[in-house]
Simulated assay, not measured.
Amino acid sequence: MPPSTTVSVLVPAAGQGTRLGRGPKAFVRVGGRTLLEWVLEAFAWADEVRVALPPEAEPPAAPANVRFLEGGEERQESVARLLQGARGDVVLVHDAARPFVVPAVVDRLLQAVAAGGAAVPVVPVPDTLIEPEEGRYGPALDRGRYALVQTPQAFFRELLAEAHQLARARGLLATDEAQLVRALGYPVELVPGDRRMFKVTFPEDLALAEALARTWDRRPV
């Protein structure tokens, strides 16, 4: 990526964490820090970080490159609000529920987005994958044909803005930005992700996050 390229990080953190059951997920603590604090530390190098919080949330103390906005009811709406006013040539959209960001993955994303305009990290599906049938074991799927998508996801800012504009016009609702960019007919490159960048979703994920937090500062890059 050219040295002059600027990067905005967009963090939708307005979710209520219903499946986790601990209140707004961004403020759940792991290893002595909130999930959001882990994310802000990971992206301290960015030109700007824009965070969407729940309407009732009090913005925490943060570095000068961080700005807080009120999020929407859906993740997609929060990202659209964050995108308005973002200044970076490239935007990274990252889930606040993924506290552990591996620098090597971010480097791969930035290289890929510079070449193609859109890139996301993925990891292979490790388990047997089935399609359940009325609560019973169903047909096994070829797990080699599938991948698990992670964040951050990287895009040229103008490309992502166009994708959100199309989504509003067509009433499209997606669970990540790559789906919206793909709806434009624009290719999204895949780069190798990292299993340490898992999403804290269920209560048992907190135990894994606590264990990883204890050794994270000694992680390999």
Rank of each mutant, 00 (worst) to 15 (best):
D89V: 04
P103Q: 13
V106T: 00
L148W: 08
V113C: 03
N65E: 13
P55M: 10
V113S: 05
V149Q: 14
N65K: 13
A119N: 02
G31V: 11
P103I: 06
V93N: 05
A114I: 06
Q165A: 15
K25H: 10
L92A: 09
V149N: 09
V51Q: 07
P121L: 05
S78D: 09
P63G: 04
E158D: 15
A46I: 00
E133P: 01
E77P: 13
A118W: 08
F155G: 06
G32P: 02
E73W: 06
A46G: 06
E48A: 09
L82D: 01
R108M: 14
A61H: 13
G72H: 06
N65R: 14
A61Y: 08
L92K: 04
V149K: 07
V123D: 06
E48W: 07
L92F: 05
L160R: 06
R81D: 03
V51S: 05
A154K: 08
Y137E: 15
G23E: 13
I130C: 15
G23S: 12
A112C: 14
A80S: 07
A97S: 11
Q150V: 03
G116T: 14
G72Y: 02
A114R: 09
E162W: 05
E131M: 15
F27T: 12
P63D: 02
E77G: 04
Q84V: 14
Q111P: 03
E37S: 12
A46V: 01
A104D: 12
P54Q: 09
Q150G: 11
A115P: 10
L82I: 10
L53Q: 02
E41V: 03
V51P: 10
G117D: 00
Y137H: 14
A57M: 13
G85F: 02
V123R: 06
